[in-house]
Structure formats: structure tokens, C-alpha cells
């Protein structure tokens, strides 16, 4: 029974991780932008959600669409004014350049979060009871956040694979020249991908804070988490990343129970090192 409980908790946590990673996957896999500001966006959105719920008393779920829209707009502007010019000037070094630019951007965002919300860890009290099924207990907040996040990831997947605009995005990532040969406006597709990626990261942030405390410095951990999942699942591989996210959720839930909270915290770092040593080609884009 204990094993089952750990499994369920892990899967729910994994549902949230899918969204954390998939939004990065979109930006990294589709556009070749190594977005180190990803974790900062998630943390900032989480802290915004804390402020928003404290001010209005509204459900944190209401903060999800607000964070999504605001971040997507900011992402679109940032992509046009900052990322795209850098990527265009960078040529073959554009991925490295994007890493440096977004690294700087992440510091700006973290500093902004410190100024706006302070340095403390905060959390949003939301649905703090549990549903029970036999001897299993499901934390309501974890169920809602995990299901909501997994649902958004599923929508992203359906959009990419079953609509023309989504396929145009995949096409532009697999061959920009080929996409142009189809009459696709690749520049517009890239703005859309970036905006949606940043928006989804913010949506993930609004859900993360429901189940774990967040502070501006959480940004680094969230970055690492997302990169580990993408490395495990395969860059640009949406199904692989979803599976990796759930497996990491389960691994963390099991490690946290048997080895304690520190092990749970260290696990992504250990996995990242293991992946980089065992599968050094994992960060290459899937072609």
C-alpha cells in the first residue's frame, strides 16, 4: 500500500513537472534558445500567485490564466526585441549566445522578484486536506495542481500534433528552410512558440507554489529540474519528456520517503550528472 501511495504522489508531482519541462522543451527544442530564465519565470509567477491570492483571496487557479497571458505577452516582446536579434546575429553560435543572454535575463528577473516579493520562502495555502480512497490519501492541492498542469501539457501536445498552426511550429523547428518553402512565416512562428513557452512556464509557476514553498532563489532549482527532465526525455521529444517528468516525480517521491527530504532535493542534480556522463548526446536537438 505504501508503494502505491508513493507511486500516486510521484505521478501527481510528475504531472506538474511535465508542464515545467514541456514549456522549456518548446523554447529549447523548437527555437534552439537555451532559456536559462525559465526557472526565474516560474518562480516569479509563483510569487505573483502568492501576492495575488493574498490580496484578493481568490483561488490560485485564477492566477494561472493571468500569469499565462502576462508572461506570454512579455515573452513575445522579449523575443522580438532581445532574443531574435541575438539569435540572428549569432549564426552558428546562436545557442551559446542565447544562453548568455537568458542567463543575464534570469538575474534581472530574480532581482525583480526580490524587490517585489522579498527573499523569503512563501507558499499559498490551498486545499490543505486530503481525499482518501481506502488506505490511500491524496493531497487535494497536489491532485488539482498535478491534473491541471498535466491537462495543459496535453493541450500543448494536441495543439502541436493536430492543428496546422502547431504543425507549422514543428515544421519550422525541424527545417526553417522547408517551412519557408511551405509559405510559413517562420519569424512569426518563432514569436508564437516563445510566447507560449514563457506563458506555460508562468502557468506552471502559479501551480508549483500551491504544492511547495517558492522564493526567488528557487529559480535555479526549477531550471535544473526542467533541464534534467529534457535531458532524460530527449530534446524536442514531447512524449519522452512527459514520461521522464513522471518518472522523476516518482523517483523523488520514493527517495523523499526512504532517504529524507535532502535526498529528494539532491536527486535531480545526481540524475543530471548521471545523464551527462552516460548519454552525453542527450542535449542535442532531435532531428
Amino acid at each position: 500500500m505504501l508503494a502505491l501511495q508513493l507511486l500516486v504522489n510521484g505521478v501527481l508531482l510528475g504531472g506538474l513537472y511535465v508542464l515545467v519541462a514541456q514549456s522549456l522543451n518548446l523554447i529549447f527544442g523548437v527555437m534552439g534558445v537555451v532559456n536559462l530564465a525559465h526557472g526565474a519565470v516560474i518562480a516569479l509567477a509563483g510569487l505573483f500567485t502568492y501576492w495575488f491570492t493574498a490580496q484578493t483571496g481568490a483561488s490560485p487557479l485564477l492566477a494561472v490564466p493571468i500569469a499565462f497571458v502576462a508572461a506570454a505577452l512579455a515573452g513575445a516582446v522579449g523575443q522580438r526585441l532581445l532574443i531574435e536579434p541575438v539569435m540572428r546575429a549569432g549564426g552558428s553560435k546562436s545557442e551559446l549566445l542565447s544562453l548568455i543572454v537568458t542567463f543575464g535575463l534570469s538575474y534581472i528577473l530574480i532581482e525583480l522578484a526580490l524587490q517585489l516579493f522579498g527573499a523569503d520562502f512563501v507558499s499559498v495555502p490551498y486545499l490543505q486536506s486530503s481525499w482518501t480512497l481506502g488506505s490511500l490519501a491524496f493531497g487535494k492541492a497536489l491532485v488539482v495542481a498535478g491534473a491541471f498542469a498535466a491537462g495543459m501539457s496535453a493541450l500543448l501536445y494536441l495543439w502541436l500534433n493536430h492543428t496546422m498552426s502547431g504543425k507549422a511550429l514543428l515544421a519550422a523547428s525541424q527545417s526553417p528552410t522547408g517551412a519557408i518553402c511551405c509559405g510559413i512565416d517562420v519569424a512569426r512562428v518563432r514569436v508564437t512558440a516563445f510566447a507560449i513557452g514563457v506563458g506555460l512556464a508562468a502557468a506552471a509557476g502559479a501551480l508549483v507554489i500551491v504544492i511547495m514553498p517558492v522564493a526567488p532563489q528557487t529559480a535555479a532549482d526549477l531550471n535544473l529540474l526542467a533541464f534534467v527532465i529534457i535531458a532524460l526525455g530527449g530534446l524536442g521529444d514531447y512524449v519522452g519528456v512527459a514520461i521522464a517528468a513522471v518518472l522523476l516525480g516518482i523517483a523523488q517521491s520514493v527517495a523523499g520517503y526512504y532517504l529524507g527530504g535532502n535526498a529528494e532535493y539532491v536527486l535531480p542534480y545526481v540524475l543530471l550528472l548521471a545523464v551527462m556522463v552516460a548519454l552525453p548526446g542527450r542535449f542535442r536537438r532531435v532531428r
Partner: peptide, 11 residues
């Protein structure tokens, strides 16, 4: 029809 074909391998 560009040189190298420029298809989308995963589509």
C-alpha cells in the same frame, strides 16, 4: 525544392 530537400524528418 531546395538542395538537401529540407524535409521535416519527424512529420
Amino acid at each position: 525544392v531546395p538542395s538537401g530537400r529540407e524535409l521535416f524528418p519527424r512529420l
